Amino acid sequence: RELEAFAERFKQRRIKLGVTQADVGSALANLKIPGVGSLSQSTICRFESLTLSHNNMIALKPILQAWLEEAEGAQREKMNKP
Results as ranks from 00 to 15, higher is better:
residue 1 R to N: 13
residue 1 R to Y: 08
residue 1 R to K: 15
residue 2 E to P: 02
residue 2 E to V: 03
residue 2 E to A: 04
residue 2 E to M: 05
residue 3 L to K: 02
residue 3 L to S: 03
residue 3 L to G: 02
residue 3 L to W: 03
residue 3 L to F: 07
residue 4 E to S: 08
residue 5 A to E: 13
residue 5 A to K: 14
residue 5 A to G: 10
residue 5 A to M: 13
residue 5 A to Y: 05
residue 5 A to Q: 14
residue 6 F to E: 03
residue 6 F to N: 01
residue 6 F to S: 02
residue 6 F to A: 03
residue 6 F to M: 03
residue 6 F to Q: 01
residue 7 A to R: 02
residue 7 A to Q: 01
residue 7 A to K: 02
residue 7 A to D: 00
residue 7 A to I: 10
residue 7 A to C: 11
residue 7 A to H: 01
residue 7 A to Y: 01
residue 8 E to P: 01
residue 8 E to S: 13
residue 8 E to K: 06
residue 9 R to Y: 10
residue 9 R to E: 11
residue 9 R to A: 15
residue 9 R to M: 12
residue 9 R to T: 14
residue 9 R to V: 09
residue 9 R to N: 13
residue 9 R to W: 06
residue 10 F to H: 00
residue 10 F to P: 00
residue 10 F to M: 02
residue 10 F to D: 01
residue 10 F to Y: 02
residue 10 F to K: 00
residue 10 F to N: 01
residue 11 K to W: 01
residue 11 K to R: 13
residue 11 K to P: 01
residue 11 K to G: 02
residue 11 K to M: 07
residue 11 K to A: 10
residue 12 Q to V: 07
residue 12 Q to H: 07
residue 12 Q to W: 03
residue 12 Q to D: 10
residue 12 Q to T: 11
residue 13 R to Q: 09
residue 13 R to W: 03
residue 13 R to P: 00
residue 14 R to I: 00
residue 14 R to E: 00
residue 14 R to S: 00
residue 14 R to Y: 00
residue 14 R to K: 00
residue 15 I to S: 06
residue 15 I to Y: 03
residue 15 I to L: 11
residue 15 I to K: 13
residue 15 I to D: 05
residue 15 I to V: 11
residue 16 K to N: 13
residue 16 K to R: 14
residue 16 K to G: 12
residue 16 K to S: 13
residue 16 K to Y: 07
residue 16 K to E: 15
residue 16 K to F: 06
residue 17 L to A: 03
residue 17 L to V: 04
residue 17 L to H: 02
residue 18 G to K: 06
residue 19 V to Q: 15
residue 19 V to R: 11
residue 19 V to G: 02
residue 19 V to D: 04
residue 19 V to L: 11
residue 19 V to T: 07
residue 20 T to K: 15
residue 21 Q to G: 04
residue 21 Q to F: 08
residue 21 Q to C: 08
residue 21 Q to Y: 08
residue 21 Q to E: 10
residue 21 Q to L: 10
residue 22 A to Q: 15
residue 22 A to M: 04
residue 22 A to G: 11
residue 23 D to G: 08
residue 23 D to E: 13
residue 23 D to C: 05
residue 23 D to F: 05
residue 24 V to A: 04
residue 24 V to P: 00
residue 24 V to E: 01
residue 25 G to L: 10
residue 25 G to H: 15
residue 25 G to I: 09
residue 25 G to F: 07
residue 25 G to W: 12
residue 25 G to A: 14
residue 25 G to P: 04
residue 25 G to D: 14
residue 26 S to T: 07
residue 26 S to D: 14
residue 26 S to W: 13
residue 26 S to K: 10
residue 26 S to V: 09
residue 26 S to G: 10
residue 27 A to M: 05
residue 27 A to L: 04
residue 27 A to I: 04
residue 27 A to W: 08
residue 28 L to T: 04
residue 28 L to H: 03
residue 28 L to W: 02
residue 28 L to R: 02
residue 29 A to G: 15
residue 29 A to L: 08
residue 30 N to Y: 14
residue 30 N to M: 07
residue 30 N to G: 11
residue 30 N to F: 14
residue 31 L to S: 08
residue 31 L to W: 09
residue 31 L to D: 06
residue 31 L to H: 11
residue 31 L to T: 14
residue 32 K to W: 05
residue 32 K to P: 05
residue 33 I to N: 05
residue 33 I to T: 06
residue 33 I to F: 08
residue 34 P to I: 05
residue 34 P to E: 13
residue 34 P to R: 07
residue 34 P to H: 06
residue 35 G to S: 04
residue 35 G to L: 04
residue 36 V to Q: 04
residue 36 V to Y: 04
residue 36 V to R: 05
residue 36 V to F: 02
residue 36 V to E: 07
residue 37 G to M: 06
residue 37 G to K: 08
residue 37 G to N: 14
residue 37 G to Q: 07
residue 37 G to Y: 09
residue 38 S to H: 14
residue 38 S to Y: 02
residue 39 L to E: 04
residue 39 L to W: 05
residue 39 L to P: 10
residue 39 L to G: 04
residue 39 L to V: 12
residue 40 S to V: 03
residue 40 S to Q: 08
residue 41 Q to R: 10
residue 41 Q to E: 14
residue 41 Q to W: 08
residue 41 Q to I: 15
residue 41 Q to A: 14
residue 41 Q to F: 15
residue 41 Q to S: 13
residue 41 Q to L: 07
residue 42 S to R: 12
residue 42 S to Q: 07
residue 42 S to E: 12
residue 42 S to C: 08
residue 43 T to D: 08
residue 43 T to F: 02
residue 43 T to N: 05
residue 43 T to W: 06
residue 43 T to K: 04
residue 43 T to P: 02
residue 43 T to S: 07
residue 43 T to M: 14
residue 44 I to T: 01
residue 44 I to G: 00
residue 44 I to A: 00
residue 44 I to E: 01
residue 44 I to R: 00
residue 45 C to R: 14
residue 45 C to P: 05
residue 45 C to A: 14
residue 45 C to K: 14
residue 45 C to F: 07
residue 45 C to S: 15
residue 45 C to E: 14
residue 45 C to N: 08
residue 45 C to Q: 14
residue 45 C to M: 13
residue 46 R to T: 02
residue 46 R to K: 12
residue 46 R to E: 14
residue 47 F to W: 03
residue 47 F to I: 00
residue 47 F to P: 01
residue 47 F to L: 06
residue 48 E to L: 00
residue 48 E to V: 00
residue 48 E to Y: 00
residue 48 E to S: 00
residue 48 E to N: 00
residue 49 S to Y: 03
residue 49 S to T: 12
residue 50 L to V: 12
residue 50 L to T: 09
residue 50 L to G: 14
residue 50 L to K: 13
residue 50 L to I: 06
residue 50 L to C: 15
residue 51 T to D: 14
residue 51 T to Q: 14
residue 52 L to S: 02
residue 52 L to D: 05
residue 52 L to A: 03
residue 53 S to Y: 06
residue 53 S to C: 12
residue 53 S to K: 04
residue 53 S to L: 02
residue 53 S to T: 05
residue 53 S to P: 13
residue 54 H to K: 12
residue 54 H to Q: 11
residue 54 H to W: 11
residue 54 H to T: 15
residue 54 H to F: 11
residue 55 N to M: 11
residue 55 N to Y: 07
residue 55 N to S: 11
residue 55 N to E: 15
residue 55 N to P: 15
residue 55 N to C: 10
residue 56 N to V: 15
residue 56 N to R: 09
residue 56 N to Y: 15
residue 56 N to E: 14
residue 57 M to L: 10
residue 57 M to V: 04
residue 57 M to I: 06
residue 57 M to D: 00
residue 57 M to N: 05
residue 57 M to T: 03
residue 57 M to K: 00
residue 57 M to W: 04
residue 58 I to G: 06
residue 58 I to L: 10
residue 58 I to Y: 07
residue 58 I to H: 05
residue 58 I to F: 08
residue 58 I to D: 06
residue 59 A to M: 13
residue 59 A to D: 09
residue 59 A to W: 05
residue 59 A to Q: 14
residue 59 A to K: 14
residue 60 L to C: 15
residue 60 L to M: 05
residue 61 K to W: 08
residue 61 K to D: 01
residue 61 K to L: 05
residue 61 K to T: 06
residue 61 K to M: 07
residue 62 P to Y: 02
residue 62 P to N: 04
residue 62 P to V: 02
residue 62 P to W: 01
residue 62 P to A: 03
residue 63 I to K: 06
residue 63 I to Y: 12
residue 63 I to L: 07
residue 63 I to R: 06
residue 63 I to T: 14
residue 63 I to Q: 04
residue 63 I to C: 10
residue 63 I to N: 05
residue 63 I to S: 05
residue 63 I to F: 13
residue 64 L to W: 00
residue 64 L to F: 03
residue 65 Q to K: 09
residue 65 Q to C: 06
residue 65 Q to G: 08
residue 65 Q to M: 09
residue 65 Q to L: 08
residue 66 A to R: 11
residue 66 A to K: 14
residue 66 A to T: 11
residue 66 A to V: 07
residue 66 A to M: 10
residue 66 A to Y: 07
residue 67 W to R: 01
residue 67 W to V: 03
residue 68 L to T: 02
residue 68 L to K: 01
residue 68 L to Q: 02
residue 68 L to N: 15
residue 68 L to I: 14
residue 69 E to Y: 05
residue 69 E to C: 05
residue 69 E to K: 10
residue 69 E to A: 11
residue 69 E to W: 05
residue 69 E to G: 05
residue 69 E to L: 10
residue 70 E to T: 10
residue 70 E to V: 05
residue 70 E to R: 09
residue 71 A to S: 08
residue 71 A to K: 15
residue 71 A to I: 05
residue 71 A to Q: 09
residue 71 A to C: 06
residue 72 E to A: 04
residue 72 E to Q: 05
residue 72 E to V: 03
residue 72 E to G: 04
residue 72 E to F: 01
residue 72 E to P: 03
residue 72 E to M: 03
residue 72 E to L: 03
residue 72 E to C: 03
residue 73 G to S: 10
residue 73 G to C: 11
residue 73 G to T: 15
residue 73 G to R: 09
residue 74 A to D: 10
residue 74 A to Y: 12
residue 74 A to H: 11
residue 74 A to E: 13
residue 75 Q to L: 12
residue 75 Q to S: 13
residue 75 Q to Y: 08
residue 76 R to A: 13
residue 76 R to H: 12
residue 76 R to V: 11
residue 76 R to I: 10
residue 76 R to E: 13
residue 77 E to K: 11
residue 77 E to W: 06
residue 77 E to S: 10
residue 77 E to I: 08
residue 77 E to T: 08
residue 77 E to L: 09
residue 78 K to I: 10
residue 78 K to R: 14
residue 78 K to T: 04
residue 78 K to V: 11
residue 78 K to S: 08
residue 79 M to Q: 10
residue 80 N to S: 14
residue 80 N to C: 15
residue 81 K to H: 03
residue 81 K to F: 15
residue 81 K to S: 11
residue 81 K to Y: 05
residue 82 P to W: 07
residue 82 P to H: 03
residue 82 P to G: 11
residue 82 P to Q: 13
